[in-house]
Computed example of a mutant assay.
Amino acid sequence: MATTTKAKKTKPPKPSARKDNPVNVEYEKKAKELVKYAMSQRSADWEALANNLNALGVEITPRGLENKISRGGFSAAFALQCMEALEINLAALPR
């Protein structure tokens, strides 16, 4: 009788944290700086931006907002919401 041997399956690569990728770190820093710069241009503090975001329907506290921005790992949608809340038009986008 002939026997067959199964090929050994290789394990999938270990996932690495998104924060470990230097490119992500660089762009998260840029996103954080963009929001902070926009706030400075409008003389807005965390409370003012949080109030404006809440008016748009984004529920966040001033402290939660500060934490989110300081971590830098927020979505592009959130960055655009911040720009709208600060009344900054990044580009005339078609609606």
Rank of each mutant, 00 (worst) to 15 (best):
M1Y: 08
A2W: 11
T3W: 12
T4G: 08
T5P: 06
T5L: 12
K6Y: 11
K6I: 12
A7N: 11
A7L: 15
K9P: 10
P12F: 04
P13F: 08
P13H: 12
P13Y: 08
S16F: 12
R18M: 07
D20E: 14
N21Q: 09
P22I: 06
V23Y: 14
N24D: 10
V25D: 04
E26C: 14
Y27F: 15
E28Q: 11
K29L: 11
K29P: 00
K30M: 15
K30H: 12
K30T: 08
K32N: 05
K32P: 01
L34S: 04
K36S: 07
M39L: 06
M39V: 04
M39F: 05
R42H: 09
D45L: 05
W46I: 02
A48V: 13
A48K: 10
A48N: 06
A50S: 03
A50F: 00
N51C: 08
N52G: 04
N52T: 05
A55E: 15
L56W: 01
I60K: 00
I60D: 02
T61G: 01
T61W: 02
R63K: 15
G64A: 09
I69C: 02
I69T: 02
F74L: 06
F74M: 05
A76E: 09
A79D: 03
Q81W: 01
Q81T: 01
E84R: 08
L86T: 00
L93N: 10
L93E: 10
R95N: 15
R95S: 14
